[in-house]
Structure formats: C-alpha cells, structure tokens
Design a protein around this nucleic acid. Structure first.
Length: 113
DNA sequence: TCAGTGACTGACC
DNA sequence: GGGTCAGCCACTG
C-alpha cells in the first residue's frame, strides 16, 4: 500500500504522528507536504477528527503564526496550551513564543518525495 | 440538492 | 504594514 493510496485525512494523521516531542508545525506546512497547500483548511478539519486519535498530537499543529486557533476544539479549556507547555513550548495569550525555533518542517524530517 | 461554515493561507489593495 | 478577498474541500442543516 503506497502512501498515495491513503486518504487525505489519513496522510494528515500520519504526518502529524511524526511531529517530534517539543516541536510544532502549521496546517499549511502539512498541507503543502501533501501537495495541497491551498487545502490547509482540510488539515484543520482532519485535526477535528484527530481528537479521537491519541496517536495524533493535534495540539502540536497550529496556524502559520503559531496561534492556537484550535484550542477551543479541545476540552474547551486551555488543555492545548498545557500540553504544549508540558513539552517545553512557551505559550502566551494562545500564541507560541519563539515559534520559528519550535517549528518542525515535514520536508526536513520526512523528506521531499 | 443547495448553500453556509470552518482548527488556514496567500495574494492583493 | 495592516485589513480584505478568494480558494481550497468536506461536512451539516
């Protein structure tokens, strides 16, 4: 089974699962890696379903500027921020500090296909 | 079936 | 440099 045979959502989950501890990435980065840079919204929608998948660290996926736009989709609290802070990521006002330092690029780790 | 909405992004003004 | 608009695709009413 080639990765290309998988669904778009499945690809998103697989990439998200590769996000290392203490690192974060953006919806657009995942979308671009999947060849759908303009479908970043679908990545976000995929994360919506990722809530039922413990293997998928949806809290490590934020928007391009490191803003925790999806925190409300968690338990409705600051769980997303707590998880990130637990990994050594500083979050202030729902925004990741030093986002460029914590940013994880799928192309660098998974390689460009 | 159709229209609206959404965890986004890039381009344009 | 900041606000606005269009595009992307799946899901819901």
């Amino acid at each position: 089974m080639n990765p290309e045979n998988k669904n778009f959502f499945q690809k998103v989950y697989e990439v998200a699962k590769h996000i290392p501890y203490g690192r974060v990435t953006s919806y657009g980065a995942i979308a671009k890696y999947l060849g759908a840079a303009r479908s970043a919204r679908m990545v976000g929608w995929a994360m919506n379903g990722a809530g039922s998948m413990p293997e998928v660290p949806a809290h490590r996926v934020v928007n391009k500027i490191g803003l925790l736009t999806g925190k409300q989709h968690f338990d409705g609290t600051n769980l997303m921020q707590q998880l990130l802070e637990n990994e050594g990521i500083e979050v202030v006002d729902n925004q990741i500090q030093n986002f460029d330092k914590h940013f994880w690029d799928p192309f660098l780790e998974l390689g460009v296909e």
